[in-house]
Design a protein around this nucleic acid. Sequence first.
DNA 1: TAGATTGTTAATCGATTAACAATC
DNA 2: TAGATTGTTAATCGATTAACAATC
Lengths: 214, 214
Amino acid sequence: MAKNVTAQTLQRLPLYFNYLVSLPENRKSGNISATAIADALGLNDVQVRKDLASVSRGGRPRTGYVTAELINDIGHFFGFENHDGVIVAGVGNLGRAMLGSDSFADYGFDIVCGFDCNEKITGTDINGKPVRHISEMKNFCLNQNIKTGIITVPEKSAQEVCNIMTDSGIKYILNFASVHLNVPENIIVHNENISMTLAMLTRHSFFEKELTFR
Amino acid sequence: MAKNVTAQTLQRLPLYFNYLVSLPENRKSGNISATAIADALGLNDVQVRKDLASVSRGGRPRTGYVTAELINDIGHFFGFENHDGVIVAGVGNLGRAMLGSDSFADYGFDIVCGFDCNEKITGTDINGKPVRHISEMKNFCLNQNIKTGIITVPEKSAQEVCNIMTDSGIKYILNFASVHLNVPENIIVHNENISMTLAMLTRHSFFEKELTFR
DNA sequence: TAGATTGTTAATCGATTAACAATC
DNA sequence: TAGATTGTTAATCGATTAACAATC
């Protein structure tokens, strides 16, 4: 597995996954050809075959791929059967949305705890997930071996919270605050900037091909 | 402007923008060379120059680019000085976070109204933004010429809400529900799947280069 | 001036696509 | 068998990078 997948392939794989999952049940239980996927997504069929080759055990001439198997293989590639603990720093509206969402589990993530400095909410539960004081983060993460954190605090506290996270052994940070974070060499940050996403969507239609499965 | 910018360039431009904006004030008021940007972001300097050429009026030999001008040019390219009205469908935690955020304005967006079907919250205000009943969406959007909508409703209502949006003249949809939406030919949807983003971040480090500005 | 930097033209590298043999 | 489809090898296309003249 993972036979040096290129960045381009990696960007297209979620596309295939979403397309396959969105198929009606009767088609999902059968086979599907790379040609059909390519047509549906407006891509080249050889490209689809090459992309799929890097994650699946392959299809069969004449019949194509077993749809359910393909969904599984892509899911496996992305680690959807994992159970990786994730913490959320900042229990405002956005943080609450993260704690309240049940869809992370399908992708192999377990949102285990929220952290905040507001003592009105520390000690409470949201969707069965505890909210603790931010000073408890380090112990919590080290004990539970948590490597992934989501930052949903206001911009002004983002860097400070980021420092606490790296100090807590967090290696991957999904940052919703629209500020640049300075992190040590080996920490990987992804800045999710919703405004920028909107700008690319509405003013340059960059996503067009990616999203219209017809 | 907009001299056929490639998808690759379009993906790198926000990087330059974030890097420039994150610069300390004293450097932001001076000049910067493409070489310096390239070094900081781990890219090739010619590539940076080519990318910048598609949005800026150009730099000067020996001194480079005027930093403030460059920030402005990229911002202009992305339409950050616009005032585009945006509506939010679904005023749960995520919707509330959208209505409550003040950072959209910096990117040329004005979140004008939230819509929900829960009559306990319709008629209220969040961060000065009214929440109306979803049945009022069509009139509202047509009157105010709104072309952009954000979907933050539960999965099961997403398609229905999507239909109402397209019927309301919405052209661009940012969808946070993790379901595939069927839309007419000319409507552009971007599916923001936070779980998938987490999966790519933690299990394939796809974003690595994109995000470590040192 | 000398040297840093820009922008462009040419070379290289890699991704996409076309052609085709193998398979069921 | 005939035909649809896979997977691979070769050709094409486009993006990146190297080389260099122009500029201040």
